[in-house]
């Protein structure tokens, strides 16, 4: 999270949204900032038995119990060791519920407008594409915008 890049002015009329850019492996994923409640460092996670495989457990965040999901596991990628860059992004799903997701690193906050976003071409071969809502272009890099609803609502 360095500086916020706000490119207002001429694009005022367009729908502008801010995203937190996170890294998983070499890829960049964006999370709409309106869902993000907090970003915390890795801490001790209490395992919850019989939970879905991609949930690592729960943490105590200032007296609140928050389930923690590994985005790598959810995206069917291999898990890596946690580093000093590993972060947990706390996402507020509704008034009472929060979920934390583990990402490899958090790099910055970007502002994207409609012009720089497009629908991803649906390719059934990769299961993680179902969790991507949009593809954003920012300074020559691609950011996959995560559909928050799809990664937390799914019950299996």
């Amino acid at each position: 999270m360095e500086q916020q890049k706000i490119e207002l002015g001429e694009k005022k009329a367009l729908d502008v949204k801010q995203f937190i850019v996170t890294k998983i492996g070499k890829e960049q994923y964006g999370i709409n900032i309106q869902y993000v409640n907090n970003i915390v460092r890795m801490q001790k996670i209490t395992r919850v038995p019989k939970a879905q495989y991609y949930y690592k457990g729960v943490i105590n965040l200032r007296g609140e119990i928050i389930p923690i999901m590994s985005l790598r596991l959810k995206f069917e990628l291999e898990e890596i060791e946690y580093t000093k860059d590993t972060r947990i992004i706390i996402i507020k799903t509704d008034k009472q519920n929060s979920v934390g997701i583990i990402v490899d690193a958090v790099s910055e906050v970007v502002t994207l407008d409609e012009e720089h976003m497009e629908k991803p071409t649906v390719d059934g071969s990769e299961s993680r594409m179902q969790y991507i809502a949009m593809l954003g272009k920012h300074e020559g890099t691609l950011i996959s915008i995560i559909n928050i609803g799809s990664i937390i609502s799914e019950i299996d």
């Binding site: 879905q52 729960v58 119990i65 389930p67 799903t93």
Partner: peptide, 9 residues
């Protein structure tokens, strides 16, 4: 404290 709705246990 509740575990929330997301976790299936």
């Amino acid at each position: 404290k509740t575990l929330g709705k997301c976790l299936n246990n």
